[in-house]
Nucleic acid binder design. Structure first.
Length: 610
RNA sequence: GGGACUGUAGCUCAGCUGGUUAGAGUGCCGGUCUGUCACACCGGAGGUCGCGGGUUCGAACCCCGUCAGUCCCGCCA
C-alpha cells in the first residue's frame, strides 16, 4: 500500500481538519460531506455502495459508517481515463476519490440522502482495495429480505457493513461508555477478574480449558465473576463494577449466547434499596443514551404475587389478561383432566377474554393455535369455554355443573381458557398463551411502552422434581430473608431470599441479591444444598476463608448487557448486537470455531479424544 | 437430550398430484445510453435441487438416515 502512504497529507499541517475522523489519507467521512464544506476533497474513501453508469456519465455511491455520498464522474470535470475506470468499478471495493464538493443541480437532489444536496465531482480515482463480488449483498433496496442467517454469519465481514448492524454496534459502544461513566462517577472501581478460573460443578456447565503444565487438571471460563466480586468486597474495595464476559456451556436460544456480557456490580454496606436505586439510575442513563426516558422508580412485585397473577417470575405488565384460579368451578364437575389435576394437588388456572375485548374475534382455529402454544410450553392441553347466554359452549362444557359459568366469572360472550395441572406447569404455559393473546387482541400499547418491575422475595431453594434435591433459585451465596433464617433448616422450601430481578416487558434484564457474609450461614446453606463440609471446603474454601477474615455486608447485581443493547436497538436477536456471535449450536461460522486440533497438541495437554 | 420449521442459480424465492430440457427477480459478464440515485434498454453465462441411502418405469417432489440454520421444551446455580 506504499502508493497510498506516499501521498501528501490530506490536510495541510496548518489547516483545521474538516472532521475529527480526518487522517493523513482521508479528508472527511462520506456521510459528513455537506455543502458547507465547499472545498477540495482529496481522499474520501470507503466502499462502493452502488453505481450507475449512464454511458457518458457515471455515478457511484460511496459508503462509510457516517453514511452515503454520491460521486459524479462527468467529462466536464473528469479526465477520460478516470471516467472509463469509474464505469467498471465493482461494488464493495475500497476507492479513494479526489475531487470537489459541489451542489447538485436543483432537479437532481436526493431528499432521501443526508448528503443529497451535494456530490463529489471526481477528478481522480484509485482503487486501493479491490473487492470480489460479495457473497451476500450489502446494499439492499428497501423491503428486500435479508440473506439467510447462516450466510450472514458466514460472511460476517460483509453483514457488518450494513448500516443497521453498524448502528447497533455504535449504540452498544455508547451504552458501554455511558455505563462506565455513570458507575465511575458514582465511586465504583472498574476491576478485572480472571478468565481462567476454577471449575464449579454447581449451576451451568463450564467451558473447560486443559492445563498443559498440570496433567489432568482444568481451568474453567467464568460463568460470572460472582465469587471474585465478593472477594473484592472482603478485600475492602467497597464498590466494584466490570463489563464482564461470561461463559456458559448450555443450549442456546434467540436471547442466549454461550459467551455474553454482563454489567457486573457489587458494593459493601448496602441494602436492597441501595442496589435497586443505583440500578434504576443506571438504567435511566442507558435508556437516555437512545433517547428514551424511563420512570425514576420502578414498581415492585413479590415473587409469589407474580407467579399467582402472571404464572411466571418475569411478568409482562404492559397489559392485563391476568391469570385466575378457576378450580372451584371444576371441583364439582366430571371433567377427568381437571379431576386428576385437583386430586394431585394442582389447580385449574386460566384467563378470561371479555366479549368487549374481542373474544368473538378468536376463531376456533386461533384457539387451536393458542392450545398448540400451551402444549409446546408443557401443558397437556387448553380447556376452552365460551359463554352464550346462560350456557357454556366447548368440548368440556357438558362435564361441568350448571352454575359453572357464573363460578368461572364468564359473562355472555366471554371466552375462558384453562390449564389443569400443577402451578409449575400451568404458569409458564398460561404466560405463553397470555403473551400471544395480547398480540392477537392488540393489547400491547403502541409506541414502545416500557413496563419495568422489580420482582423480589424469591424463594431460596427449589426442589428438583425428579431427584428430590434442593437447588438454589438464585445462587448458593444469596442471603436468606432475616425473617426466614430461623426456619431455614425446618422449612427450607418456604425460605425467601434477599434477591431481586429487574424485569422489562416480560424480559429479565438482570438480577442480584444481598450475599451471605457470615461463614456459619454460608455453611448452613451449603449443607441444605447437599454440599457437605469437605466438599464445600474443596470447592469454595477460598470464599469461606474470605468470609472468616472480616467480611463486610455486601450485595450487588448483574445486568444482561447484550439484552439491554438488543432492546434499545430494536433488534430481534442477540446476534444483531454482538459483532461475532455463535449459532444455536454454539458454532462460529465466520472463523470456524470450535475446530479440531492436531494430535500432538492434544498429547501436550494430556488429552485423549475417543 | 427432545420437538417443529427451513435447505432449489452468488442472493431472495417459485416449482401443482412423482412425468420430457428445473424457472422468475436481483446480482454477475458483454453491449447501447450525458443527471442518475433500485437508472433504463438489449443480449449472455450461471444448478451436486444440502449430503447419503431407499421406494418407483421415472424423484427437487414420497420414505429413512445425516449435516447445517432458525425457533421452542428440557437445560441455563
Amino acid at each position: 500500500m506504499s502508493a497510498v502512504t506516499a501521498r501528501e497529507p490530506a490536510t495541510p499541517p496548518n489547516a483545521a481538519p474538516v472532521s475529527p475522523l480526518s487522517t493523513s489519507l482521508r479528508t472527511m467521512m462520506c456521510g459528513d460531506v455537506r455543502a458547507a464544506h465547499g472545498r477540495a476533497v482529496d481522499g474520501v474513501f470507503l466502499h462502493v455502495h452502488r453505481s450507475r453508469d449512464l454511458g457518458g456519465i457515471v455515478f457511484i455511491d460511496l459508503r462509510d459508517r457516517a453514511g452515503l455520498v454520491q460521486v459524479s464522474f462527468d467529462p466536464r470535470w473528469t479526465p477520460s481515463d478516470v471516467l472509463a475506470r469509474a464505469g467498471s468499478l465493482g461494488v464493495e471495493s475500497v476507492v479513494l476519490v479526489d475531487g470537489t464538493v459541489a451542489e447538485r443541480p436543483h432537479d437532481a437532489r436526493n431528499p432521501d440522502l443526508a448528503t443529497g444536496k451535494v456530490e463529489i465531482r471526481a477528478t481522480g480515482l484509485r482503487v486501493v482495495g479491490p473487492a470480489v463480488t460479495p457473497a451476500i449483498p450489502v446494499a439492499r433496496v428497501k423491503g428486500e429480505p435479508l440473506p439467510a442467517e447462516e450466510l450472514r454469519l458466514r460472511h460476517r465481514h460483509l453483514d457488518l457493513r450494513r448500516p443497521e448492524l453498524q448502528a447497533n454496534l455504535v449504540l452498544r459502544h455508547r451504552l458501554l461508555q455511558a455505563a462506565r461513566g455513570f458507575l465511575a462517577t458514582a465511586g465504583f472501581l472498574e476491576l478485572e477478574t480472571p478468565i481462567l478460573t476454577k471449575p464449579t460443578p454447581e449451576g451451568a456447565r463450564d467451558y473447560l480449558v486443559p492445563s498443559r503444565v498440570h496433567a489432568g487438571e482444568f481451568y474453567a471460563l467464568p460463568q460470572s465473576p460472582q465469587l471474585y466480586k465478593q472477594l473484592f468486597m472482603i478485600a475492602g474495595f467497597d464498590r466494584y463494577f466490570q463489563i464482564a464476559r461470561c461463559f456458559r456451556d448450555e443450549d442456546l436460544r434467540a436471547d442466549r449466547q454461550p459467551e455474553f456480557t454482563q454489567i457486573d456490580i457489587e458494593a459493601s454496606f448496602v441494602t436492597p434499596e441501595d442496589v435497586i436505586g443505583l440500578t434504576e439510575r443506571l438504567l435511566g442513563v442507558l435508556f437516555a443514551e437512545s433517547g428514551v426516558t424511563i420512570p425514576e422508580r420502578f414498581p415492585r412485585m413479590a415473587y409469589a404475587e407474580a407467579m399467582e397473577r402472571y404464572g411466571i417470575d418475569r411478568p409482562d405488565l404492559r397489559y392485563g389478561l391476568e391469570l385466575y384460579d378457576a378450580s372451584a368451578a371444576f371441583r364439582g364437575g366430571e371433567l377427568g383432566i381437571a379431576r386428576k389435576a385437583l386430586d394431585a394437588g394442582g389447580r385449574v388456572r386460566g384467563l378470561r377474554i371479555a366479549a368487549s375485548e374481542g373474544a368473538a374475534r378468536l376463531s376456533r382455529k386461533q384457539v387451536d393455535e393458542l392450545e398448540a402454544i400451551a402444549r409446546a410450553a408443557g401443558a397437556g392441553g387448553l380447556i376452552r369455554l365460551r359463554r352464550a347466554g346462560h350456557a357454556l359452549e366447548g368440548p368440556a362444557a357438558k362435564f361441568l355443573a350448571a352454575d359453572a359459568a357464573d363460578q368461572l366469572g364468564l359473562a355472555d360472550g366471554d371466552l375462558g381458557l384453562y390449564v389443569a395441572d400443577a402451578d409449575r406447569v400451568s404458569g409458564p404455559a398460561l404466560d405463553r398463551v397470555r403473551q400471544e393473546l395480547a398480540r392477537r387482541l392488540n393489547r400491547i400499547p403502541p409506541g414502545g411502552a416500557l413496563a419495568f418491575v422489580w420482582v423480589y422475595d424469591f424463594p431460596m431453594f427449589e426442589r428438583d422434581p425428579s431427584s428430590g434435591h434442593l437447588g438454589a433459585v438464585h445462587h448458593p451465596f444469596t442471603a436468606p430473608h432475616p425473617d426466614d433464617v430461623d426456619s431455614l433448616d425446618s422449612a427450607p422450601e418456604r425460605a425467601r431470599a434477599v434477591a431481586y430481578d429487574v424485569v422489562l416487558n416480560g424480559t429479565e434484564l438482570g438480577g442480584g441479591s444481598i450475599r451471605i457474609s457470615d461463614p456459619a450461614t454460608q455453611e448452613r446453606v451449603f449443607a441444605l444444598l447437599g454440599i457437605d463440609a469437605e466438599t464445600a471446603r474443596a470447592r469454595f474454601g477460598f470464599l469461606l476463608d474470605g468470609l472468616r477474615s472480616g467480611a463486610p455486608p455486601h450485595g450487588g447485581i448483574a445486568l444482561g448487557f447484550d439484552r439491554i443493547a438488543m432492546l434499545l436497538s430494536g433488534a430481534a436477536s442477540l446476534r444483531d448486537v454482538i459483532a461475532f456471535p455463535k449459532t444455536t449450536a454454539a458454532r462460529a461460522l465466520f472463523e470456524g470455531a470450535p475446530a479440531p486440533v492436531p494430535a500432538a497438541e492434544l498429547r501436550d495437554l494430556h488429552i485423549g479424544v475417543e
